[in-house]
Amino acid sequence: MAPVLDIASWVLLISGSFFVIVGGIGLLRLPDFYTRVHAASITDTVGAWLIILGLLLQVEHTLVGIKLIMILLFLILTSPLSSHALTKAAYYRETPMFRSGPDQTEDDR
């Protein structure tokens, strides 16, 4: 395998892993449910994309590559839907929301 591809793969996989871990740290550190959704969406978008791109460069058989691209597409299509459904459900259940500093706006529901 060409060393250039290997290096590109390394870079993509490592940066993907970095974003995945940032998502995990965010999931633990952030103060309330709504902000944690943002952290989870880091993992779902760039983390997943970079890892799959990194794997894509190591593909030897075309069908394997196509399946990876299909996984990528499914992740792109489903991740916003599930985070939207989650936040909407949490909003209707009046999950407490973290607000920093003085309260700027009332909950305009």
Partner: peptide, 23 residues
């Protein structure tokens, strides 16, 4: 603390499982 945090964690865990199976 809330049930939604748990579901979010579950969903995120699932995404990582998909990536892990691919790796």
């Amino acid at each position: 603390p809330t049930v939604f945090d748990r579901i979010l964690a579950l969903n995120s865990f699932g995404t990582k499982t998909v990536l892990m199976i691919a790796v």
